[in-house]
Design a protein around this nucleic acid. Structure first.
Lengths: 350, 350
DNA sequence: TTGTAAGCGTTATCAC
DNA sequence: GTGATAACGCTTACAA
C-alpha cells in the first residue's frame, strides 16, 4: 500500500492540510513546519496521488490524442512520430502529460471523443484528422471541449486549428513541375474525403488552370494512405493512353509506392517521370533518387497544436478560436529533374 | 458542467447506486429499472468519470510507457512507432489505454518511475530500455510495480521481460558475413552502456572466435543512436590502416548513417563494403542498395510486452517474473553482397 | 500559522 | 431489488 498524505502528516506531526499546503508552496506556512514536512516527504518518497488530485481539482494536466480510427495506418506513416515529437516537446515544457485512448476503438469518432472528454481523463484534445463535414468538429464546439485540430476545419469558427496552407502547397508543388515543362501531371492523393487531399488537389487544379493546362480527371487518383496505395495509383496512371510525365503525390509514403511501381516497370526517375511528394520524411533525403518534396514542418504542427491547446485550457475555452498557419517550402532534390548540384543536397548513394 | 451519475439517478427516479449497478451489469436489478436507467443514460449521453472510478477502484486500466530520457532520439528511430503499434494493438484488445509521461522529464529514471506509479495514473509500466545495472529494475522489484521490460534484464528474476536473443542475433549476423569470406568486420554500436549493444557485440565477438578470426577492438565503435552516429562510426572505421571489408551496425538507422559515410567517400556497397543492420525498418527494403538486416519483430515485442503486463496486472504481481524471447531472422538483401535474385526481394530503384 | 470538515464522482457494504 | 452511507486521497473554504 502506497503512502498517502496522511502518512506523511502523521509522521511529521501535522495535519494533512498542512502537508497539502507545503506541497502547494503555500506562503502562509511556517518555515519550520515546511522544512519538517519536506524531510518526511523525501524520507517516505511520497508522490501525490494524481487521480485524487485530478478529482478535486477537476483537471488532469493531460492532453488527449484523438488518433484516426485507421490507427495502424497512422502509426506506419512517419508523420506520426514526428508530430508526436512536436506535441510531446511542447507538452513537456508546459507540464502536461499525454494520453492515448486505444481502448475504445470499437466506437465511432464522436463516441470516442465523448468518452475521452467526459471521462475527465484529459483536459483537452488534439484532433489529428478531419473529413469533410466531420461531426467531430460540431461536437467539440457544442460541448466546449478545449481542442485543437491539426488540419483545416471547414468552418474556422468551430475549432482552433493549426495547419499548412495546403492549397498553396499543392499549387506550389504543381507550379514547380509546370515550370519544368510538364504538361501531363498526375496526382496521387489519399482518401478524397480528407480535407488534406481536397486542399492539395485544389491547389493542383488551380496551378494547372493558371498555366492554361487542361485539368484531366483521369490524371487524378485517390488511394489508401499507404505505400501500397501509391503503388496502385501509379500503376493506374501509367496505364493511361497518354501517360503523365510527372506526378504529385500528396504524401511521401505515397510517393515511394509510386516510385516502386515506376521502377518495377522500368521507368527511370527523373528522366522518364518526375515525382514530387509531401512531408519531407527522413527517407526522402536518402532515397534513390532523393525525393523532391514539400516540407510542411510536421514537428512545428505538433508543437504548435499542443501549445495552442494548453493555452486554451488555461484561459478557459471562452477564448475565440484561433487559426495558425505553418509555412511550407519545397525541398528540391533529384526526383523532379530540377536538382542543382550547387544545392549541395545529399548526393551519395546515387 | 458535465452530467454525473446523480443527474442520471435523479432523472430516472432511482438512487446513484442503482445507476452504478446498471452500469456494472449487476444481475440483481429489475429489467424495468435497468431499461429505464439505460434510456436516461443515452438521453443524457452520460459517460462515467473515469477519474472518480479509478480513485475508488484503485485501478486505471491504463498502461504507462517509460520512454528513455533521450526521448527525441527515441521518437526519431522507426523502432518507436512500430513498438508502439504493437503495444497499442494489444492494449486495445484487452481494454487498456496508454499514458505517456512527458511532464517529468527533468527527473531521473527512477524518479520518473516513482512518480508515474505512485501518482496512480497507470496500473503498470512498460520499460523501453535498460542500461547495465539500471537502478530502475531494482526499484520495480522493490516496489512490486507491475512492469515489463522490452529488453534484457541482467537479472531475470528482477522483472518480466520480452526480448530477442540479441547475442545470438549478433552472432548470426556476423557469421553471415564471415561465411561470405569477410575477415575484417567492423561493428558500429549504440551506447556501450545499453544491454542491447553489449549483447549484440558479444555475439559478434563469439562468432569471430568460433571462426578463428581475431577480435580487434579498433574495429568496434560506439556512437549515438542516430543516423549521424552511424556516419561518424563509419568514418572512424574507414580511417583505420586496415579497413574493414564489412560492417555490422547494431541498428538500421546506424547502418544508414554508415552507408551515407561510405557513399560520400566513394565506396560502393556491397562491392567495396558489405553492410548488415538490425531491425528491418521500412526504409531497409527500399534503400539503395536494399539493406540486409536482422528482423527482430518489433511489433511482436510491443504486443507481447503489453500482453504480459496486463496479464501481470490481472493476476497480481505475485506471479513469478517471466522471460519471453521473440525470434529473429536475417533478411538478406543486397547490401551484404549475398543477394540472390531468386529471393525475389525488392529489386527496383537499384 | 494550522486544523477541521466538506466535497470531487464513483463504487461497495450494508441495511431494508 | 434498491437505497443510504462510507470510503478512495486529495484540496480548500472556514474556523481557530
Amino acid at each position: 500500500m502506497p503512502i498517502s498524505i496522511k502518512d506523511v502528516a502523521a509522521k511529521a506531526g501535522v495535519s494533512p492540510s498542512t502537508v497539502s499546503r507545503v506541497l502547494a508552496n503555500n506562503p502562509r506556512i511556517s518555515p519550520e513546519t515546511s522544512e519538517r514536512v519536506r524531510m518526511v516527504l523525501k524520507e517516505l518518497n511520497y508522490h501525490p496521488n494524481e487521480i485524487a488530485r485530478s478529482l478535486v481539482r477537476q483537471e488532469t494536466r493531460t492532453l488527449g490524442l484523438i488518433l484516426p480510427n485507421a490507427i495502424d495506418q497512422f502509426f506506419l506513416n512517419p508523420f506520426f512520430p514526428e508530430v508526436l515529437r512536436g506535441i510531446s516537446q511542447a507538452a513537456r515544457k508546459l507540464g502536461y502529460d499525454l494520453f492515448l485512448s486505444t481502448a475504445s476503438q470499437g466506437l465511432n469518432d464522436v463516441e470516442r471523443l465523448d468518452q475521452m472528454v467526459q471521462s475527465k481523463r484529459v483536459d483537452g484534445v488534439i484532433l489529428l484528422t478531419v473529413k469533410l463535414d466531420d461531426p467531430l468538429l460540431k461536437r467539440v464546439q457544442d460541448n466546449h471541449v478545449p481542442a485543437v485540430l491539426i488540419g483545416r476545419s471547414p468552418d474556422q469558427a468551430m475549432v482552433s486549428s493549426i495547419n499548412n496552407d495546403n492549397k498553396k502547397a499543392g499549387y506550389d508543388a504543381t507550379m514547380h513541375l509546370l515550370k519544368l515543362g510538364h504538361q501531363h501531371i498526375g496526382f496521387i492523393g489519399g482518401s478524397p474525403e480528407l480535407i488534406l487531399t481536397i486542399d492539395r488537389l485544389s491547389g493542383y487544379a488551380q496551378a494547372l488552370n493558371d498555366a492554361n493546362v487542361p485539368f484531366d480527371p483521369q490524371l487524378v487518383t485517390s488511394e489508401e494512405f499507404l505505400e501500397e496505395g501509391g503503388y496502385t495509383g501509379m500503376m493506374k496512371l501509367l496505364a493511361l493512353p497518354t501517360r503523365p510525365s510527372a506526378i504529385i503525390a500528396s504524401d511521401d509514403v505515397l510517393a515511394f509506392g509510386a516510385m516502386r511501381a515506376a521502377g518495377e516497370l522500368g521507368y527511370h526517375i527523373p528522366q522518364d517521370l518526375a515525382i514530387v511528394g509531401f512531408n519531407d520524411i527522413p527517407l526522402a533525403k536518402i532515397a534513390n533518387p532523393p525525393l523532391t518534396t514539400m516540407n510542411v514542418h510536421i514537428f512545428e504542427l505538433g508543437e504548435g497544436a499542443a501549445t495552442m491547446l494548453i493555452d486554451q485550457i488555461a484561459n478557459g475555452s471562452i477564448t475565440p478560436t484561433k487559426t495558425q498557419i505553418v509555412p511550407h517550402n519545397l525541398i528540391v532534390r533529384r526526383s523532379c529533374g530540377a536538382w542543382n548540384p550547387t544545392n549541395n543536397l545529399v548526393s551519395h548513394l546515387s
